[in-house]
Write a protein that binds this DNA or RNA. Structure first.
Lengths: 194, 194, 194, 194
DNA sequence: TATGAATGAGGCTTCATTCAT
DNA sequence: GATGAATGAAGCCTCATTCAT
């Protein structure tokens, strides 16, 4: 999947830098990735990073904010139009899994990694967590979600989706995740639906 | 909760070092924690760590292996004696949540953190994941677990438990988690039970 | 005051570059001024400097030699025609102070700054120091300068002139310096005249 | 001359570091001196600097403040006890010249260098300038200083002293400066005394 | 001619670890 | 055993200069 890049920078080394950084941040974590690592993998001098970012930190934050915003927006668009809770749940799971299948590295960076390093930055972007909450609140109102703490239900849904992805990475599951969307959505629905 | 320490070292600076290291590793990650950080928080000199460990890495691995083994063993002991799937599930959730309530930092270090830094080390210890798998296999055999991919079901259970803990840390949930054990086990059971 | 520029280059970016460089060199020193600083303040690209100069060093030397030569020549012309020591002294002080008033930045760059960076370059240009020496030697011969080491007297005159300028920059003195020419020349005369 | 050093650090590398830094800062300026330069001349690893200072800047400021304060205090003590303006002037010039003779490098660093790099720091320490002002104000009150702007007179005195030192460094003057104290004080007195 | 991305050397600083005291 | 100064490798970043467009 192509990362989001300002058109004017299409023929600079920025795309290579972003992709290299993304991979390394995901593999080893932001802190453990050195600027030299990034430069080497991008096929670029270290100094080149600084034409596009103020520093490693900004690079990491930029990658995070830009792509998470984009992903969440897309997810909103494919989930919220569905009227019923059950369909929304399926769309949610499917949206996540398709994204995972398409760019596992990016998914991991945005959603699975912890990023203590990014500090407050991570709190300023809409996240699946918020979408799930919206879905649950609507579902409760429409009577499709059973009694119980909505935060706990949110944890069930998000926890399940993310852990399935983690298991896929560990190799405990195989093949494209989108093949499992139905089954995973079903499990979630059983857990929280009426 | 008191960390596990060789009796002969009870009155050295080791306990302080371990606790300081644990806190910092959990707060900032192993890589981002410096030996100076640890020394300062433990109230010892920088060189003091090296009388107890070969280096930072060994300290991190030691903490991990010792305590994770201990936790998993305890969990096995409180879960496996129960004969039925449903009770085991409840015991599992409750065991995890009690541990979380007792020492959130240690729980985070052992279970929630990612620890790319520890590499292969993390694979050499029995983990909740293995216990969950055992419970599910037994439950399938006894007919208490419905049709469906056991790996997916494992992801549901573990994902749910861990995400509830994460939500507690974020402050989305409040109070002791053990109060939620029943509700969380119920959700898991609905998701995978017959 | 307009900097000295080859007529053919009047409508290139050279004037802007020179002025920006002069200001920055004076404010922060040559070493601490980056080519990017200069480019930004001049409103040109980083590479643009290199069409007019071989590099930053040459730019700094060029500025120095061109303008110092010009200033010293002017000073010679306005000082030496006076026949008496006293009048020459006044003309000297006044010439310096007028220059200061007209372009304080340039005066600072040429006369007040230390320029370790310019190395030998600074020694190849006639300097006020030489003019002062000439005046004193003549004054001694004509009996207008009292007994005493002429080098020390030179230090008194130059030191006084420069320090007055420095005090003006610090804000310890106010207004145009040329208003003080008479008083300063008087002090110098008392110090070294018969 | 021995630099001022906390007793507890007498047998560390700090003295070597301070002396090396002082020499280099004076020779090439703070900015142009690299930490590697300092380490090499001090016979120390670069990292060693950071056991004693937060960074190069702090090292430069520390050197400046500590020693300038000390010098000015000494100068106050040897100048102010004299009751008359003339004697004070002589003591001032002599105090400066003795200091110059004893440690020319330190004198240059503290008094002759410009130190744009030190910014506001330089303004927080009592300086010869303040002492000169005090002397002149008293001298005016006692009727020993003639009519005229005291700031200008201050510039004459300080400018003269400093320029003599500069000329000594250039080699225009030779031998110990203290031999010239009387003559220089005389010139200053003629310039501003009654 | 002008731009600004890219380079590569080198600057400042950090850090795990060692070692003299 | 304990301290903390020192080391040296490595990390992040800057900068004068080059070069493709």
């Amino acid at each position: 999947m192509e990362l989001i890049i300002d058109d004017r920078k299409r023929d600079t080394k920025l795309p290579a830098i972003l992709r290299a950084a993304l991979e390394l941040f995901t593999e080893k974590g932001i802190h453990a990735t050195t600027t030299k690592d990034i430069a080497r993998r991008a096929g670029v001098s270290e100094g080149a990073l600084y034409r596009h970012f103020q520093g490693k930190q900004e690079l990491a934050e930029d990658l995070y904010i830009t792509h998470l915003s984009h992903f969440t927006a897309q997810l909103d668009k494919s989930v919220l139009p569905h009227p019923g809770f059950r369909d929304r749940l399926e769309a949610l799971v499917d949206g996540c899994f398709r994204f995972f299948d398409e760019d596992r590295t990016l998914f991991t960076y945005l959603i699975l990694s912890e990023h203590n390093e990014l500090g407050r930055t991570t709190k300023r972007v809409r996240h699946i967590r918020h979408l799930v909450r919206d879905i649950l609140v609507d579902g409760r109102q429409s009577g499709e979600v059973r009694e119980g703490d909505l935060e706990v239900f949110g944890a069930v849904i998000i926890g399940t989706i993310l852990r399935v992805a983690v298991f896929r990475i560990y190799g405990l599951l195989q093949g494209d995740l989108r093949g499992q969307s139905k089954e995973v959505a079903e499990a979630c629905y059983r857990a929280v639906g009426k």
